[in-house]
Structure formats: C-alpha cells, structure tokens
Design a protein around this nucleic acid. Structure first.
Lengths: 252, 252
DNA sequence: CGCCGGTTTGAGTCCATTCAAGAGGAGTGG
DNA sequence: CCACTCCTCTTGAATGGACTCAAACCGGCG
C-alpha cells in the first residue's frame, strides 16, 4: 500500500506512463509541471456524466472507478475498471462530448488536468504523447478482451477471467498481490462487468469456491493456484501489454 | 460508390482524418507523402495475425475487414468491423505484439505504412497526430457500445443495433445510404459480432422482418422507417462521434 | 450435374434469469 | 446499547431465451 505522503500528486501518472515508455528527466519534469486540481470524490459519485462537455482529463490518484453505460430497459453495463495512475478520462475529454459515465467505485482522489494542457504536453514531448496514446490503446485492448469474455465464455469462465485480470493489474500498479487482494466491488457490479445478474454471480462465485479455484471472505479474494484459475478462466495476460515494448523505441 | 480511379491511394485516410480534424494543405500533403505499399487481400485472408510482431500499420482502401479473438472452447468473437479509410492496425502496430487478428471480410485493398512513419507524422504534425489519436479513441467508444450491446440487450435489439451502426457508418464513409445497403457478412459472422449463434441470428432476422423493421434479400438490408428501427435497436449515434468537434480546436 | 457454403426450420435441452424471501452486517439515531 | 434501516449476500423454485443437434433447402460455381 502506498500512501500519498509527501509524494507529488501526479507521481502515479508518471509511474504509469513510464510503464509504456521510459521518460528522461526533462520529460518527467514536464509531466510533474502539468497544472492540476485535486478533488476528493465519494464512493458512488459521478466523475464524468454521459453527455457532459468534458474540458478536463481526470487522473485517479487513489481509489477505484468504473465506466458505465445504461441501456433502454434500465440495464447497466460496466465497460472498465480503473485504478491508481489511470487517466480515466482521456477518452471523453479529447472527443468533446462524453459518450458514457465514469463513477467512483470507492472513495477516490482525482486530479483534474485541463485538456489543453494534456494536448500540449503530448505534442511538445513525443515520448510522453506516445505513452499516453499507448495507454488509451491498451484500454481499447482490454475492451476487446471484455467483448470476447462476455460474448463467448460461460459464467464461471467470465468471472474467473475478471478476477485474474484484476489481480494482474493490481500487482502491476503496485497495489497488491495477484494471488490475494481486496475486491472493491459488490456482486451486482461484478454482474454488470460480466453481463450476468447478481444472483447468478453469487452462485458462480460459490461454485468457483467449491471447485477450489478461489477462497473469499467479504470482499477479499484469494487464489490458491494461479495455474488452475488461469486455466478455468482462459486467461492469458498478453492483452494487457505489460511487457515493456510498447510503441517500439523512444524518439530522439 | 467511389472508384479508385486516378485518386491518390491514401485519399481515404485523408478523408477520414479530416472528419475528426480539419487539416491544412501542408498537413494534407504530409499525409499523402507517407510511404506505403498496396496489397490486394482475398476475402477471409488474415491481414494481421494474433501474436504477430507488427511493424506496419494497415489502411483499408477498399473492402471490409474485421477484428477477431478466439476463446478456449473454439468460440470466436468479432470486436469490430472496418471499412474504407479505417486505419485497421494502429492498435496492434503501436503496441508491438498483436493481441488479436484482423481478417478480410471481403476482398480488400490494403495500404501498409511503416509504423515509424506513422509515429513521425503524428508528432511532426500535431493536427494529424490528434486526428489519428481521435480515430483510435472512437474505435474504443464503439468497443464500449458493443460491450453494452452484448451484455445487456436481447437478441433482436442487439442485431437491430448492429444494423443501425452499420448504416450510419457506411453513410458517413460515403459508401452507401443508411436506409439501404449491402451487408457483406454471413449470419455466422453476425452471430460472432453479437455473441449469439448463427441459428438464433437467423430466427431473429426473420422476426425483425416480420415486425416490419427491415426487409432483406440475400445480403441486402433495407430499413423502412429509421425512427422505428432505431427505437427497437436502442440506437443513438452519439457514440460514433460524427459531429465535427473532436479534440476541440486545431493547434496553431 | 453435383458439390459446398450459407440459410432455414424443428424439437428438445440447458444455462442463466426472474421472482421471492430470508440472513448477515454496517451504520444511524434514540 | 439496542432497535431500526438499508444494502448486500444467499438460497430456492419456476420460467424462458438462446443453444444444440439435426436435417432440409437453396443458389452459385466448377
């Protein structure tokens, strides 16, 4: 667990960007020099609302958030979960009008950065821009995997897959271990991530527990054997692009 | 219908980019000056294979292509359909290793552009880069809508939604009318786009026909009443971001 | 003409849903 | 400290939308 402590508030962004592309001192300083304003957001509150004209990008400094869309009959679809260091709203702010909402899953600290400042740094420092672009491309890769997950896997596989992804991403973000972590979601939210109902999520979780794939208490998930669960989950981590070779080589 | 004729092969790319961001003469010339190599690809052939180390980006000059992923039990998920002017492979080539395949739906003409050339023009000409970035963000927006479509809508709504999207995009690309077009897909491919089986797609198409939403012959789709079908489809076009305000204003 | 991929149709099955009700836990206020 | 409420989790029974399996049909093409 990291504390905010004395660290620069934008440090998590820097950490994330460096994952995709090494940045030199000048580039890192430029990131730190971005203008921002930090706000505390309560669990459940909207960070961006569908239809908003977004003029700022949001960086998650602590806590968790998710993207959601509503359909005609009132159903909800969650299309992404975000954690510390994620630029939660490049998607909306660069496109002008938000096509979906972003909501706080837990209490969050969010840094708002004016969209023009993001554009400026992206093109003034190509390596920073490339890292940001990659970040949005990896979000897209995760969307594709979720499409496949929801479209073509059964309930147990879907949920196991989500649990695997969550573990790997938490570990990559330095927020926990992939074999044991706090899952900050209700079963209903889990259902909206996987296209199931909360009742069936409940039954499926119990089945996963019974088959020895996971153990869990309230919101804590523990994975006994990574090989076993990633097998039932049909999980391969390539789509997360954690290997450090995004975008090829640095620009001069 | 546009013919290739005497036009510059990269003209469709220019058209697409200008949709997101107006480009001046110098910027347009830079796009036209991109190095490329055109190849004819047969229907069904792979343009990019899952796991490839992609070093070039692919631009669709004519024909249709789709993105697909396979899951453990052999099921297939189609996560996107692409048409003339689409940069089909920024996603893979910028990230290094392809996390999914791209396959020709019909016979295609594809222009291959070295990835370094794409990166160079993107950062040498910020407006071009911004347009490309927007393009990938809009792809991501479509992914999110597909997630909601597959996760939370019933079969008839799902398919009607896909038909609406297809009509609007074809019209936006100057390839047809949204109320009547050729659908270059088999029912099995339609099924893989919507997370259904081909049998059920067949029944659902017949039901849509019976209820007067569409008429169809072999691969031809006609929509009698846009209001009616977009209603049964729960379709709103905002997520396609066709309104010309992506990315805010041009850079100086 | 015969093959082959795609479409159509029927019958039976099943995975996930719906509806309903009870149990557990956290937080609030008297 | 307890009563009360709200939310989440849990479980059961019945239902249903989509699937599976299978066979027939159709149209284009070699």
């Amino acid at each position: 667990m990291e504390t905010l402590g004395t660290r620069h508030p934008l440090e998590p962004l820097l950490r994330k960007l460096q994952q995709w592309m090494p940045l030199d001192a000048k580039e890192a300083d430029a990131v730190r020099a971005l203008p921002y304003e930090v706000q505390r957001v309560k669990a459940g509150a909207y960070i961006v609302r569908d239809g908003d004209r977004a003029t700022r990008s949001c960086l998650l400094i602590s806590g968790f958030a998710f993207r959601q869309k509503l359909v005609a009959d009132g159903g909800r679809s969650i299309s992404a979960i975000h954690m510390c260091g994620d630029m939660v709203d490049l998607q909306n702010s660069l496109l002008g009008v938000a096509d979906h909402s972003v909501q706080a899953l837990t209490q969050c600290n969010v840094a708002f950065i004016p969209r023009e400042a993001v554009k400026e740094i992206a093109f003034a420092f190509p390596n920073v821009g490339m890292a940001m672009w990659c970040d949005t491309l990896i979000d897209a890769s995760i969307f594709r995997e979720w499409i496949a997950n929801i479209a073509r896997r059964d309930a147990a596989t879907r949920i196991a897959h989500l649990l695997c992804e969550f573990g790997v991403r938490l570990e990559a973000a330095g927020l926990g271990a992939k074999l044991a972590y706090e899952l900050p979601m209700t079963q209903e939210q889990l259902a909206d991530c996987t296209g199931l109902t909360s009742v069936h999520v409940n039954r499926t979780l119990k089945a996963l527990e019974a088959s020895g794939d996971i153990t869990r208490s309230i919101r804590h998930v523990a994975i006994a054997d990574w090989g076993k669960i990633s097998d039932t989950a049909d999980f391969q981590s390539e789509y997360l692009h954690l290997a450090p070779d995004c975008a090829g080589s640095r620009a001069a």
